[in-house]
């Protein structure tokens, strides 16, 4: 059968969701942010929540998320997205509220807001993109940077004695009683994307049932910051990031899956 005969509307299997705008994404080629944006929007599309959702964009590469997500969005000051989301959710408890934050935003400048929002058990969803580096400002060392990883501000690799240990913020907030669902996913292969989408769906369903805070970390690549081509950056992520940041659910139904 000719390709032209297959390409017809009745044979359509997959196309970009209408909840993503037609703007060209401002991210580097191969960046996991685009996939993460899309799976969140696909989840909202499938749940029919477009008109009931308010997103909070962070500061960082994804600061322009409101240009790409076709829903109501607020852009918060650096690190303050969980605090803004708390205010939105408390004034409009009927709305679905999520924050979309990177590791420089959530795990560095916004640590206090993140930990206290999680500890209070605010009924919001936090999506956390962890690529172990400050991407937008030029690849400086972040709290989540791995030991020995070379960045613009750690050119000889991260030295634990002088620069401290990498922060596993997801495991940290999983200990807090306010969090109901905590999971770590990735978006580098089709199967990982499908699993991540399921985790995000579960997170929004928990918010629907007012059970508490749901937190999904997505381990992602930063090929510009890591100075690698996209496919090699994904491989580097599998080889180096996943042993330190293992994928899977950390807390389900308010119970830790395995004590770490």
């Amino acid at each position: 059968m000719d390709v032209k005969e297959i390409i017809k509307d009745e044979n359509l299997v997959y196309k970009k969701t209408s909840l993503m705008t037609s703007n060209v994404l401002s991210y580097c080629p191969g960046c996991g942010h685009g996939t993460a944006h899309r799976i969140i929007m696909e989840t909202l599309d499938e749940m029919g929540l477009q008109s009931q959702t308010i997103g909070v964009a962070p500061v960082g590469c994804s600061v322009l998320a409101y240009d790409f997500m076709n829903i109501d969005m607020i852009q918060a000051a650096h690190g303050r997205a969980p605090a803004v989301a708390t205010g939105v959710k408390r004034t409009r408890p009927d709305k679905f509220v999520f924050t979309y934050q990177g590791d420089g935003d959530l795990a560095a400048i916004g640590t206090a807001e993140t930990i206290h929002a999680c500890n209070r058990g605010e009924n919001i969803t936090i999506v956390f993109i962890n690529n172990g580096i400050y991407g937008m400002t030029g690849g400086q060392m972040a709290p989540t940077t791995l030991e020995g990883m070379k960045t613009a501000t750690s050119p000889y690799g991260r030295n634990l004695r002088s620069m401290g240990n990498p922060l596993k913020i997801t495991e940290l907030i999983a200990q807090l009683p306010g969090t109901y669902y905590v999971s770590r996913q990735a978006v580098h292969t089709p199967s990982a994307v499908r699993k991540a989408k399921k985790a995000i769906r579960l997170a929004f369903e928990i918010q629907k049932e007012n059970k508490g805070l749901s937190f999904v970390e997505i381990v992602s690549n930063c090929n510009s910051g890591w100075k690698l081509p996209p496919v090699k950056a994904n491989q580097w992520m599998v080889d180096n990031m996943f042993p330190f940041y293992p994928l899977g659910d950390i807390k389900v139904d308010g119970q830790l899956v395995n004590a770490q």
Partner: peptide, 20 residues
């Protein structure tokens, strides 16, 4: 085969998939 794996991982969502 129209499995749509490519479209699912595409960061920019530029791939549309058809299947018969």
């Amino acid at each position: 085969t129209g499995c749509s794996n490519c479209a699912i991982v595409c960061p920019d969502g530029v791939i549309t998939v058809y299947r018969v």
